[in-house]
Amino acid sequence: MTYKLILNGKTLKGETTTEAVDAATAEKVFKQYANDNGSDGEWTYDDATKTFTVTE
């Protein structure tokens, strides 16, 4: 399945997607991506749209 990440950071904004077997796997990928790019904030997940959002 395709999962989407929306970044609403102070310095990093945008979207990216990943293919993953489940939401937990996608979350690990996205959290590593956000960490690698210095983005940290409040995470939410919408199962209906398969979208993670991180807001700083």
Results as ranks from 00 to 15, higher is better:
residue 18 T to M: 09
residue 4 K to T: 14
residue 34 A to V: 15
residue 11 T to C: 15
residue 26 A to K: 01
residue 16 T to N: 04
residue 27 E to C: 11
residue 20 A to Q: 07
residue 26 A to E: 00
residue 55 T to P: 01
residue 5 L to W: 02
residue 14 G to D: 09
residue 7 L to R: 02
residue 26 A to G: 01
residue 7 L to A: 04
residue 11 T to H: 14
residue 49 T to D: 04
residue 9 G to L: 15
residue 23 A to C: 13
residue 21 V to A: 13
residue 38 G to D: 07
residue 24 A to Y: 09
residue 1 M to W: 13
residue 11 T to W: 13
residue 44 T to F: 10
residue 19 E to L: 14
residue 6 I to S: 03
residue 48 A to K: 11
residue 17 T to G: 03
residue 9 G to V: 10
residue 49 T to G: 03
residue 19 E to A: 07
residue 55 T to N: 09
residue 40 D to C: 13
residue 45 Y to E: 01
residue 55 T to W: 11
residue 32 Q to R: 08
residue 49 T to Q: 05
residue 39 S to P: 07
residue 5 L to V: 04
residue 25 T to I: 06
residue 14 G to N: 10
residue 30 F to S: 00
residue 44 T to K: 08
residue 51 T to F: 01
residue 52 F to C: 01
residue 1 M to I: 14
residue 51 T to Q: 03
residue 11 T to Q: 10
residue 14 G to P: 05
residue 54 V to I: 11
residue 39 S to G: 11
residue 14 G to L: 15
residue 22 D to A: 02
residue 19 E to T: 14
residue 36 D to S: 10
residue 34 A to W: 12
residue 32 Q to K: 13
residue 9 G to R: 05
residue 12 L to T: 11
residue 7 L to H: 04
residue 39 S to Q: 14
residue 27 E to W: 15
residue 37 N to H: 14
residue 49 T to K: 06
residue 8 N to D: 10
residue 9 G to P: 04
residue 2 T to S: 06
residue 38 G to W: 10
residue 38 G to I: 13
residue 17 T to R: 07
residue 16 T to C: 14
residue 21 V to L: 12
residue 9 G to C: 13
residue 20 A to E: 03
residue 47 D to H: 11
residue 28 K to M: 11
residue 35 N to V: 15
residue 53 T to L: 06
residue 28 K to H: 08
residue 9 G to M: 14
residue 24 A to V: 09
residue 13 K to H: 10
residue 20 A to L: 02
residue 5 L to D: 03
residue 29 V to C: 07
residue 13 K to I: 10
residue 15 E to M: 10
residue 11 T to V: 13
residue 49 T to N: 07
residue 27 E to F: 15
residue 36 D to H: 07
residue 6 I to E: 04
residue 24 A to S: 09
residue 30 F to R: 00
residue 34 A to N: 03
residue 19 E to V: 15
residue 43 W to F: 04
residue 25 T to M: 10
residue 35 N to Y: 14
residue 55 T to A: 06
residue 48 A to M: 11
residue 10 K to E: 09
residue 23 A to L: 08
residue 1 M to C: 14
residue 1 M to F: 14
residue 41 G to Y: 12
residue 29 V to P: 01
residue 30 F to D: 01
residue 31 K to P: 00
residue 28 K to S: 08
residue 12 L to Y: 15
residue 2 T to K: 09
residue 56 E to D: 11
residue 26 A to Q: 00
residue 41 G to K: 04
residue 14 G to W: 15
residue 3 Y to G: 02
residue 26 A to N: 01
residue 40 D to V: 14
residue 56 E to H: 08
residue 51 T to K: 02
residue 47 D to C: 07
residue 25 T to S: 13
residue 46 D to Y: 04
residue 15 E to W: 13
residue 52 F to E: 01
residue 2 T to I: 14
residue 22 D to S: 06
residue 37 N to F: 15
residue 20 A to W: 02
residue 25 T to E: 13
residue 50 K to Y: 08
residue 20 A to I: 02
residue 14 G to M: 14
residue 7 L to W: 10
residue 28 K to T: 08
residue 53 T to D: 01
residue 7 L to C: 09
residue 12 L to F: 15
residue 19 E to D: 09
residue 45 Y to A: 01
residue 36 D to N: 09
residue 45 Y to D: 00
residue 54 V to D: 01
residue 20 A to V: 03
residue 31 K to W: 06
residue 37 N to C: 10
residue 7 L to T: 05
residue 16 T to I: 15
residue 17 T to W: 12
residue 3 Y to A: 01
residue 4 K to S: 05
residue 37 N to G: 06
residue 11 T to I: 11
residue 46 D to A: 04
residue 24 A to N: 07
residue 7 L to M: 12
residue 25 T to N: 07
residue 53 T to F: 10
residue 29 V to D: 04
residue 5 L to H: 01
residue 47 D to N: 07
residue 9 G to N: 06
residue 56 E to Y: 13
residue 34 A to I: 12
residue 21 V to P: 14
residue 47 D to P: 14
residue 29 V to N: 05
residue 42 E to L: 13
residue 1 M to S: 13
residue 56 E to W: 13
residue 46 D to S: 05
residue 33 Y to K: 03
residue 51 T to G: 00
residue 13 K to R: 11
residue 49 T to S: 09
residue 2 T to W: 10
residue 39 S to W: 15
residue 51 T to M: 03
residue 51 T to E: 03
residue 23 A to F: 13
residue 51 T to N: 01
residue 56 E to L: 12
residue 2 T to A: 05
residue 48 A to G: 07
residue 50 K to F: 07
residue 10 K to S: 12
residue 30 F to H: 01
residue 39 S to V: 15
residue 9 G to A: 05
residue 55 T to K: 06
residue 53 T to Q: 06
residue 21 V to D: 09
residue 50 K to T: 03
residue 50 K to P: 00
residue 4 K to I: 12
residue 55 T to L: 06
residue 11 T to A: 09
residue 4 K to L: 07
residue 35 N to S: 14
residue 37 N to W: 14
residue 46 D to M: 03
residue 25 T to V: 06
residue 38 G to L: 13
residue 21 V to E: 11
residue 13 K to E: 06
residue 4 K to N: 05
residue 13 K to Y: 12
residue 10 K to N: 12
residue 47 D to S: 11
residue 44 T to H: 12
residue 28 K to A: 13
residue 18 T to V: 14
residue 14 G to Y: 15
residue 21 V to H: 11
residue 3 Y to N: 03
residue 41 G to V: 05
residue 24 A to Q: 11
residue 43 W to D: 01
residue 33 Y to S: 02
residue 23 A to K: 13
residue 32 Q to Y: 04
residue 35 N to I: 15
residue 34 A to G: 02
residue 25 T to H: 12
residue 10 K to C: 13
residue 22 D to Q: 02
residue 15 E to Q: 10
residue 52 F to M: 00
residue 36 D to I: 11
residue 16 T to R: 11
residue 45 Y to H: 01
residue 54 V to E: 02
residue 30 F to I: 00
residue 48 A to Y: 09
residue 43 W to K: 00
residue 48 A to Q: 10
residue 24 A to F: 08
residue 10 K to P: 13
residue 30 F to G: 00
residue 37 N to S: 10
residue 49 T to M: 05
residue 52 F to I: 00
residue 40 D to N: 13
residue 40 D to S: 13
residue 40 D to L: 12
residue 44 T to W: 08
residue 47 D to F: 07
residue 5 L to R: 00
residue 42 E to W: 11
residue 51 T to D: 00
residue 30 F to P: 00
residue 31 K to V: 06
residue 36 D to G: 06
residue 45 Y to T: 00
residue 15 E to S: 10
residue 23 A to N: 05
residue 6 I to V: 11
residue 7 L to F: 12
residue 31 K to R: 15
residue 16 T to E: 05
residue 50 K to R: 14
residue 17 T to M: 09
residue 12 L to Q: 11
